[in-house]
Amino acid sequence: MPKVPYLRLAIVSLAIGAVIAVLMIQIDWNGEAGSTAAGPIDALLDWMIIISSFVFAIVCVFLGYALYRWRVKPGDESDGLPIHGNTKLELTWTIIPTVIVLFAAGYSWAVLDDIEEVDSDPLIVNVYSQQFAWTFGYPTEGNKWSEGEFHVPVGQQVIFKMNAQDVLHSFWVPEWRIKKDNVPGITTDAVVTPDRVGTFQLICTELCGAGHSVMRAKVVVEPRKKFNRWVKGLEEEVPQGLYLTADQALEIQRQIQKAEGGIGGSGVDETTRDNVTQS
């Protein structure tokens, strides 16, 4: 059987994989970070990108080599070598991927436990979602509530207790790397510790109807004192029948976005990323 420079192919694959990996992890894939969960999650993603770069490089190098070496010349009607398999090789490419994915699963499990660990004194924020608006309640602050905007202190763990009023919605703040569906009939929760002061955007990520793409809210992370002032300034308590019609909710949403001056040509234009206010 004619020799194949397997060692050289392996080295080339690793080299190309390394180049891809180095280039890929320069990119800030998940965008800006704003919570303690972002670090471990982004590191996990970088690990996966590195492993994936090598996998992709191996597939491409071996495919490319096969085409370079064994592409037929016109008129050649002969057959290839009748090789039916190689048990050792087949075991190798069964076992190594198994080890890799089990490693990935174990690592993910550790990260998951890490980011969902609950502190001793979290702040509880109730989230009420409906077509197409967000409202927020502060049960430990006299059950005061806020429409379309919420504040949290920096550096303290927050537990969101989420309730959907009509259909499914989903709570996503990209900088925090957390997401959780709001499910009618049950209360779901999410844990996050914001570690960066600024203004962010809460995005609905579960299809909820015509206003889905504009169902957003303003997220403000600020120092404890400013937060205390803001939360004291809230006047109304969470009403009993917290349910607006979809039209009313959409109108509130429009007012909020108009006040932000962010509507512009787009219903969801940035109120946040482009002008993150450092305070």
């Binding site: 597939v59 096969a66 057959d79 290839g80 090789i83 991927p97």
Partner: peptide, 20 residues
């Protein structure tokens, strides 16, 4: 991903020493 990977690697293995 493991059985799926087996398929990809086996197709590559099929190309080796072939007349492509």
């Amino acid at each position: 991903a493991v059985p799926t990977g087996i398929k990809v690697f086996s197709w590559l293995g099929t190309l080796f020493y072939g007349k492509i």
